[in-house]
Design a binder for these strands. Structure first.
Length: 257
DNA sequence: ATGACTGCCTCTGGCAGA
């Protein structure tokens, strides 16, 4: 089975590109971030026409996540990240699909640093870790995928200097991400590209795509059982270069059945 | 270079993104 994650930067603006990507690459499970849609406006039927069933968690203007599954309805386990009753941002969706627990996240960006948004990011990462430890303890095979908004290492960015003041690569952000891996989760893309140099995001500005000025912030984390089944992992880079593309490219992992 | 581009909802300019 193929598990994919794609920050689409607006479901309405991206609909033709998104349907094209689904038809061309046919992931078994597709996790979307930044749908930027209220629940009642989400164009579910567009995906059902392609043979996908889905659940989503949206809000007005920003954020929003969705889980699509090929020919099977995801069974929702959790909507919204537990741990803060005041947090109403639509960034977390967890479901059981095809015998696997799928967690779709859109982790807060955290800029500017320092400030309340950065504090929210770090607190969110600790809440995520708590949730992931709980899932780990339940011993269900699990993939946590999405836009983590963390550049894990210097070789995950075209120029570390250019991003050094950004929330995406602050030592605190990296340390929080490292703690997830230290808990035992496998960073699928890193495992197959140990020397780094693989990007999943290119800014719209300053010709970043044309100059290949990118970095890696979209991740697929696997429990050991799924890591053992990992066959191939990749980035659909070519989709970033199309007309009206998202600023992120899709990331996918193939698991042996 | 407090720059750049894109999407959203709309106080069609200001905010957010990364």
């Amino acid at each position: 089975m193929k598990i994919a994650t794609f920050n689409i930067n607006g479901v309405k603006a991206r609909l033709p590109r998104l349907k094209e990507w689904l038809a061309e690459t046919r992931p078994s499970v597709a996790c979307l971030q930044e749908i930027k849609s209220q629940d009642e406006n989400f164009p579910a039927s567009e995906f059902e026409e392609l043979g996908y069933q889905l659940i989503w968690h949206g809000q007005k203007s920003f954020n929003g996540v969705a889980i699509l599954a090929d020919g099977e309805k995801p069974i929702e386990v959790q909507q919204g990240l537990p741990g803060d009753p005041e947090d109403e941002q639509a960034r977390y969706l967890e479901a059981d699909v095809m015998g696997i627990r799928i967690v779709c996240i859109y982790l807060p960006n955290g800029n500017p640093v320092p400030g309340p948004k950065f504090d929210y990011k770090l607190a969110w990462m600790e809440r995520l870790r708590s949730r992931m430890r709980k899932i780990w303890q339940s011993e269900v095979p699990c993939a946590v995928v999405g836009d983590f908004n963390v550049i894990p290492q210097d070789d995950d960015v075209w120029a570390p200097k250019a991003m050094e003041n950004d929330a995406l690569m602050q030592p605190e952000s990296r340390a929080a991400y490292s703690r997830l891996l230290a808990d035992g989760w496998c960073d699928a893309l890193r495992t197959h590209n140990p020397r780094g140099g693989v990007w999943t995001y290119w800014d719209y500005q300053a010709g970043a795509w044309q100059r290949d000025h990118g970095f890696r912030i979209d991740h697929i984390l696997l429990t050991p059982e799924l890591a053992d089944r990992l066959q191939a992992v990749g980035v659909d880079r070519e989709h970033r270069g199309r007309e009206k593309a998202s600023d992120h490219a899709p990331v996918w992992a193939n698991l042996r059945n």
